[in-house]
């Protein structure tokens, strides 16, 4: 197995912590992401990621932990979107865009301030594209606790959310508080996006949120299998991504490793393409049989 696992991979504490965080976040992202994809809210999910970026950058300026910045920023963004938010799809599109635009403006400011005030380089890349290997043990515990919290909340919210997503009016008639359910879900997406910002960076967290669930939706018909497949696809992408990134250090003589986030994103896109291809082929076979 030496061709795959370069020496020192498993003995590296940073790698092990990173993998732990990655797995937890991949699972949470897949579960929350499945509902995001079903509700066609990819854009909102991505906009939250950009707000998380502003939060992370703001945390950098203040010198507090980036995780707090990511999560709080994203939550604030969710609040802003709901405040401007409107029911009609086209207007939602605009409201999301406006929040996203404002958030990137703030990021520009904060990142600029960071480069002004600190001599440390690489903070832009760190905030934008993640820093899995620099996650401390205490952060790991916070990530784990928040992940469990999100999963429990999602489990209790699951049925009404599904109902409200499929048919809001019918759900209302049955006494589901649709707006409250929707708001709670948006907040869950916000926390999830904040968490995955730590793993693959704010602007790329969308990949973990959308990619594995979208692939799983093309495979499974039952909700439970789809949730499971989505989590597995996410976990595989993260673990394999970490390994690839670690290995890539040895690929070039310049010893410039590929970023973890890049490897993870490419693997997720690859998974999605593979599943689409499989679907297209099996559908053609069905047609021939019929």
């Amino acid at each position: 197995m030496h061709w795959l696992f370069e020496p020192g991979l498993w003995s590296n504490v940073a790698v092990r912590t990173g993998m732990g965080v990655g797995v937890a976040v991949a699972v949470v992202s897949a579960l929350v992401g499945l509902f995001t994809v079903m509700r066609s809210q990819s854009f909102a999910g991505h906009a939250l990621a950009d707000v998380a970026m502003a939060g992370g950058a703001g945390a950098g300026v203040l010198g507090v932990s980036p995780l707090a910045g990511f999560v709080l920023g994203s939550l604030a963004g969710a609040g802003a979107m709901e405040a401007i938010g409107v029911e009609r799809v086209r207007q939602r599109d605009v409201a999301t865009g406006v929040v996203l635009g404002a958030a990137t403006g703030l990021s520009a400011l904060f990142l600029y301030l960071i480069t002004l005030n600190s001599s440390s380089t690489g903070s832009t890349q760190l905030i934008l594209f993640g820093s899995l290997f620099s996650v401390s043990n205490s952060t790991f515990l916070v990530v784990l606790a928040l992940s469990v919290l999100v999963v429990v909340a999602l489990a209790s919210l699951g049925r009404p959310l599904l109902f409200a997503s499929l048919s809001p009016d019918a759900a209302k008639a049955r006494g589901v508080a649709v707006s409250r359910v929707t708001l709670s879900f948006t907040l869950l997406v916000a926390v999830t996006v904040g968490l995955s910002s730590i793993v693959i960076g704010a602007v790329l967290s969308t990949a973990l949120l959308i990619g594995p669930p979208a692939a799983a939706l093309r495979l499974g018909r039952r909700m439970s299998t789809t949730l499971f497949v989505a989590s597995m696809l996410g976990v595989v992408a993260v673990l394999l991504g970490v390994v690839l990134s670690y290995d890539s250090f040895y690929w070039w003589s310049s010893h410039r490793a590929l970023p973890v986030s890049f490897c993870v994103v490419v693997l997720i896109v690859f998974e999605l393409l593979l599943v689409s291809l499989y679907r297209a082929m099996s559908r053609r076979r069905e047609r021939v049989v019929v």
């Binding site: 969308t206 970023p259 890049f262 994103v265 997720i268």
Partner: peptide, 22 residues
């Protein structure tokens, strides 16, 4: 599902950009 395709195109491009830069 245009939004999924858009999201994936977006993150792939950003990730490529990040890799090129690093």
């Amino acid at each position: 599902r245009s939004d999924v395709a858009t999201a994936m195109a977006l993150v792939l491009m950003l990730a490529l950009g990040a890799a090129f830069l690093s």
